[in-house]
């Protein structure tokens, strides 16, 4: 029992036990956020740095609140990803921050593998808050937590992940995680954004959203970025909407108690119809709420959770 990793870089290398221990810990953490005094002294004296090289409000503030509810001190750095030619290198930036003796660095970066690179020369615990198109482990964990909360299980559920799979770190982390927990994962999207190579990740690939919707338990919609259109991944938003928007009509094909998820921020009426996003089946705001509990659990397991058996 226990979580023995120094960093949280991704889901791919976590075991099923690791994942369950994070989810179970998060159950206990969720209770704290319901109290009048939403704070425990667990990480008193610990310093956590939020180092964000990409704009983010949701993930950054979620980590910030998580750290604060555990009484850790948190510093926020929002920087523009420095290119090779201008500005300080990532290595120098991180080494400077490390000189301030933090206990953990939470890093969000536009390049895949940046947190892995940082972990090769850092003393601090590194938490990946999203790297390029690679992984976003805490998002997948909070998604799993939400699914478990709503469906009481994950194994055997038919879970659709829909949209720009190719560029999505949320999709990758969810594929790894949901596979480990035994879900039936179906990816849906236009072929350029969902190349057939994804089948080798042990998931089903579909380009027919209507058909894929049948009997779905969970519909996880991904944000579609308009920039992709410029790179010829699909012809137009109008056509994308035609084929891959989650509409009321499509939703009806799923199981009646299917839940709708989205990592945010929403493009209303692009990947998801606005009435669907606001329907009773939507758990999008619960995802946000659960994000805090998951991130508290991750911080606790990495920074605080080690102790000898209490002697009395």
């Amino acid at each position: 029992m226990g979580f023995s990793h120094k960093h949280l870089l991704g889901i791919q290398h976590l075991s099923e036990d690791d994942i369950l221990s994070i989810l179970d810990t998060a159950e206990s953490m969720a209770e704290i956020s319901t109290r009048e005094v939403k704070k425990v002294p667990t990480l008193r004296g610990k310093t956590v740095i939020n180092l964000f090289f990409e704009p983010s409000t949701r993930t950054r503030s979620s980590f910030e609140l998580a750290a604060k509810r555990l009484s850790a001190d948190i510093l926020n750095f929002s920087l523009q990803a420095s290119s090779v030619t201008k500005g300080e290198s990532l290595r120098d930036t991180v080494l400077n921050l490390e000189a301030m003796n933090p206990d953990a660095i939470i890093i969000r970066h536009a390049y895949s593998g940046a947190p892995h690179f940082v972990s090769t020369f850092c003393r601090s615990h590194i938490i990946n808050a999203g790297d390029g198109s690679h992984e976003h482990p805490t998002q997948a964990l909070l998604d799993a937590f939400t699914i478990r909360q709503e469906k009481k299980k994950i194994k055997g559920l038919k879970i659709l992940i829909v949209g720009d799979i190719l560029h999505s770190r949320v999709a990758r982390s969810n594929i790894f995680l949901l596979n480990k927990l035994g879900a039936h994962v179906v990816l849906v999207g236009p072929p350029p954004l969902l190349p057939s190579i994804f089948t080798s990740l042990n998931v089903e690939v579909s380009h027919d959203f209507d058909k894929a919707c049948i009997d779905a338990d969970v519909l996880m919609m991904l944000r579609i970025q308009r920039e992709r259109q410029e790179k010829y991944f699909f012809p137009s938003i109008r056509e994308y909407r035609e084929l891959y928007t989650l509409s009321k009509k499509r939703l009806k094909k799923a199981k009646p108690d299917a839940i709708i998820m989205h990592p945010g921020p929403l493009n209303r009426d692009v990947e998801i119809a606005t009435d669907v996003a606001d329907s009773v089946q939507s758990v999008i705001l619960k995802q946000v709420e659960n994000g805090i509990a998951i991130r508290m659990a991750v911080l606790y397991l990495l920074l605080g959770g080690k102790s000898r058996e209490m002697s009395d």
Binding site: S83, V84, S89, R91, H109, Y111, S112, G113, A114, F117
Partner: peptide
């Protein structure tokens, strides 16, 4: 070394 000691994309 400095040129290579960076993020993979860079």
């Amino acid at each position: 070394p400095d040129e290579k000691n960076v993020e993979f994309d860079n």
